[in-house]
């Protein structure tokens, strides 16, 4: 059953069809939430909230890209969670586990990479970790734009559709996010490869 048929079935109340849609997008949705929220627990909550919200409002879906629609939902859920976190700052013990997960992921990436030397792979993993951490310091709208564009590889148009803004705003937010992260990396030359050090 193709996506359009699944969407129509879900709009008729077929939860199984909606679950098929979830299975298609849950990995991407969760990863977007994870890169925006920064820890697995918050990302899981935002993803769950997004899917529940989408399930309740699936009848309001009027066509277009379901992927953009569901990513918009999870982005809004993340923004809501970030606003709540800003109002009530609290240290999360779940963040400690996030480091372990990131290291596990890096280790898997290290094993999968056969072209790099172990030293280069370690440096690259360290750079990825630094970029991921630095991205969490960006303003939420710039962070989401950076995640959607440079992590998820989406086009400006898709990002504009997801974030319900103009192409110019997407370009502006993305250039600012990239500039801040670049400046951060330039201020930490030890993170950069040898050819970038001066």
């Amino acid at each position: 059953m193709d996506e359009a048929a699944l969407i129509k079935a879900a709009q008729r109340g077929d939860a199984q069809a909606f679950n098929a849609l979830i299975l298609s997008y849950q990995s991407q949705v969760y990863n977007v939430a994870y890169r925006i929220m920064g820890d697995p627990a918050s990302a899981s909550d935002a993803t769950q909230e997004a899917f529940l919200s989408a399930y309740k409002s699936i009848k309001l879906f009027r066509g277009g890209s379901f992927k953009s629609w569901i990513l918009r939902t999870v982005t809004h859920a993340c923004f809501d969670a970030l606003r709540y976190r800003k109002r009530r700052p609290a240290a999360s013990l779940d963040g400690l586990g996030a480091d372990d997960d990131a290291e596990d992921g890096d280790f898997e990436a290290f094993l999968a990479s056969a072209d790099e030397s172990p030293a280069d792979a370690a440096e690259r993993a360290e750079l990825r970790d630094a970029i991921a951490r630095a991205a969490l310091a960006l303003p939420p709208d710039q962070r989401a734009t950076f995640v959607l564009s440079d992590v998820q590889g989406m086009s400006y148009e898709e990002i504009a559709d997801i974030m319900q803004t103009s192409l110019g705003t997407v370009k502006s937010r993305l250039s600012r996010a990239r500039a801040k992260l670049r400046d951060y990396l330039l201020s930490r030359p030890e993170l950069l490869p040898d050819e970038f050090r001066q």
Partner: peptide, 18 residues
């Protein structure tokens, strides 16, 4: 440096679903 940033960000590993 910006190109390095973009290239590295695109290699950020996907997190496994909890």
């Amino acid at each position: 440096t910006t190109r390095l940033l973009i290239d590295t960000a695109r290699t950020l590993p996907a997190q496994p679903l909890p």
